[in-house]
Computed example of a mutant assay.
Amino acid sequence: MTPSSTLSLSGERFTAVYSLSGTAAEVEARASAICLEQTVEFPEALIPNQAIRTQIVGAIAEIEPSARFSSSDESPNSFEVSIRYPVETAGRELTQLLNVLFGNVALQPGVRLQRIELPPALLQHYQGPRFGISGLRQRLGITDRPLLCTALKPMGLSPAELADMAYRLALGGIDLIKDDHGLSDQIFCPFDERVSRCAEAVSRANQQTGRTSLYLPNITAPADELDARAERARERGAGGLLLCPGLTGLDSLRRLAADERLGLPILSHPALLGGLSLGPHIGIAHGLLFGTLTRLAGADATIFPSYGGRFAFTKAECQEIANAARAPMNGLAPIWPVPAGGMRLEQVPELVRFYGADSLLLIGGDLHASGDLSARCAAFRSLVEPGSQTDSSGNAWGDL
């Protein structure tokens, strides 16, 4: 075998923090195994030379008791383990970065990827969001309030019926009108006809109101159709795109966000991603999955199930997502957290106080609770105008 004495890497590393359970000795042994598994995937005793051991294999940086369970009897021996990997192991590819972070150990029980720290040498390979918070505000002409979003539903309506709904939603002042993620290219609602009709309807409403509402069709599709569907959406007047990266892969999101020909905001839907985050001791932490990784891939806004709806995310998990979406990240634009999942108008004041002005509130079915859809949308809009809400001290939320 050819020796690797010529191996000469930069020495720069990125960090992955894992949550592991067990005794201190068990966790240290398991951490050492992860260092090998996520890089060489080779027995340590059989590594052919010292250069690979020192320059390629992951290195344990720190092991400390996990604060997540420090006051709970659920997992008294839970630790956070920081492992540092050479930046060269990730190459310049999002797919390989994800592979190093969690590829094989995702198959093992009791391992949860909590967070990551990526140096500029690695982040330079990623464009991230094209618009983010400030870019989407500029596109909509809105500077000082949360944005409003809803979905065209239920499945089963014709393109003409959905277009009429989109028109009334835009008249009512909804900023982003997206396809329901269940709308694809079904025989009862073909993609091309739906996009053409809905884009025209929203454009017509914009001309009447003088405002800007955007229609975002769902372009989630098989790999060999995805790019063409995105391009057809742009040609037919879509104002943005909805994508389910859990179904198509995060790198498909990255590719679309980087496509200069499209140049459209992308809203990420969490379909199928939930299974990666729900277990407290397995999968990927909420903030990392729905915030950091989705943002790194290029989403301008990330939908997630908010507390208080029909899903199981807690307040702490939702705050973790919102923080990760907007935290400084070496120049990558902050993105919109989009709390959703059975939200109701009566919850809007609390949602605005919790998520703040740089949030995008998604309400679906509850907008249809009365006969006048446009009036219901206008009521939704009135709840997020600056000065419409105050805290317990009487301060307007826009001043907080």
Rank of each mutant, 00 (worst) to 15 (best):
A163N: 13
L101G: 10
L98T: 12
L264I: 02
T15E: 11
G22K: 04
F14W: 13
S184N: 12
G394N: 11
L367I: 03
P109V: 12
G283W: 04
A61E: 14
S203D: 06
A33L: 12
V195H: 02
R381C: 00
R112T: 03
P270M: 05
I83T: 14
P65L: 12
T390K: 15
G331D: 09
R232W: 02
A285R: 10
F69T: 07
R145K: 12
I133V: 12
G91H: 09
D300E: 01
R53E: 14
A29Y: 04
E385A: 11
E260A: 14
P305C: 11
L383A: 08
G356C: 02
Y307F: 08
A59G: 04
R137D: 03
R255M: 07
F311M: 01
T294E: 04
V105K: 13
V81I: 04
P222D: 06
T39G: 09
E231W: 00
A160K: 15
T6M: 15
V57N: 14
T95V: 14
V348C: 09
D179C: 10
E231N: 02
Q389M: 12
E231F: 08
E41H: 10
P65C: 06
A327L: 02
A378G: 12
C377K: 09
L36K: 14
G110Y: 06
I60F: 06
S388T: 08
A61Q: 14
G356L: 05
L36I: 11
Y355A: 09
R84T: 04
G341Y: 03
T54P: 02
G342L: 06
D300L: 00
N206K: 00
I363D: 00
L214A: 03
C149K: 09
L226K: 03
G240D: 10
F42H: 15
C244T: 10
S382V: 07
L171S: 01
V17T: 15
Q138M: 05
A228K: 12
G274Q: 01
C35L: 04
I116M: 07
Q208E: 06
F14Y: 04
G275R: 05
T15G: 02
A90M: 10
R194V: 00
R30Q: 04
L98W: 03
R30I: 05
S213L: 07
L98G: 15
R236C: 11
D251S: 15
P129R: 13
R236H: 09
G308V: 01
H181V: 02
L214N: 01
S75W: 05
E26M: 07
R92S: 15
W336L: 09
R68K: 07
A258F: 00
P386Y: 00
P334Y: 06
T248P: 11
R137S: 03
A24M: 11
D192A: 13
A16N: 09
C244F: 00
D185A: 05
L360V: 10
